[in-house]
Design a protein around this nucleic acid. Sequence first.
DNA 1: TTGTACCGCTTGTGTTTTGCAAGTGGTGCA
DNA 2: TGCACCACTTGCAAAACACAAGCGGTACAA
Lengths: 143, 143
Amino acid sequence: MRSDCPLNYGIEIFGDKWTLLIIRDLMFFGKRYYNEFLSSAEGIATNLLADRLAMLEKEKIIRKGKDSQHKQKIVYSLTEKGIDLLPVILCIGLWSDKYASIKLNPNRDLIIGDAKKNLPRGIDKMKKNLLKEHVKLKMKNEE
Amino acid sequence: MRSDCPLNYGIEIFGDKWTLLIIRDLMFFGKRYYNEFLSSAEGIATNLLADRLAMLEKEKIIRKGKDSQHKQKIVYSLTEKGIDLLPVILCIGLWSDKYASIKLNPNRDLIIGDAKKNLPRGIDKMKKNLLKEHVKLKMKNEE
DNA sequence: TTGTACCGCTTGTGTTTTGCAAGTGGTGCA
DNA sequence: TGCACCACTTGCAAAACACAAGCGGTACAA
């Protein structure tokens, strides 16, 4: 750690071009598998993805699990620490929505639109949904 | 731009280890001069600082001005686009406050504590203060 | 008018991280 | 037994970063 500033703590973990995108994929697009992260629009490289997934697991932001259906596959899911990044991601999304000149993807605009209307109630609701899923997956993995 | 995702727009601008720290310094610690940014705890290098300041100015997140008191110096200040990053920075701070094992700097804890108690009212109040200063500086520069 | 201190910023260098392509070892299923 | 597919590694070139030194310009004091 470079300093005792709380902002810096977050930046040292997800202050790069890829980490938050992986979390976004888990959080909003239901992606769970290595291959799914690779197929995202931004096009992360395989070595960087492996590196980030390992880091996120070490930081206890995501968790590795086995897929009972497809036994070769590894399931990645958010921990509560990861789910708590929801406000961070929404804030960045809202800011970008306000200032980006690019056309926004309508799917994402739906999410952003919801958050824009009622903050922080919208965040709470979304968080609850994510937590429900989180608990389900946790139980599944511990079976 | 790698994609049309709004999250990605923000990440492409401030998704690195330094940019948000500079904005933090402007926003919370009243830093205005090149030298002041250099003296922050994290220790940014001079070339990287110059690079990020130029980028932030290009993105219209900060603005360069002349100092009427100390004529050699260049004054950097946040634009409204920059001020609107306040929620992003606070969200990261709150998350870190919850999960960082490190001891937090008490000065920063004050700010974080305020934000924790009443979001988004706390954010609104802080934003208003920042905007007041922003207008003042703008007028000064246009004299 | 000259000297000096200080300003933002650049340059040069070695190191680390990234980006891209190809390949590897391991597992499950036909 | 063979093949397809899985997460992940390796090799290499290019870019970004970190660190130290230095540069041109301005202001102010002698």
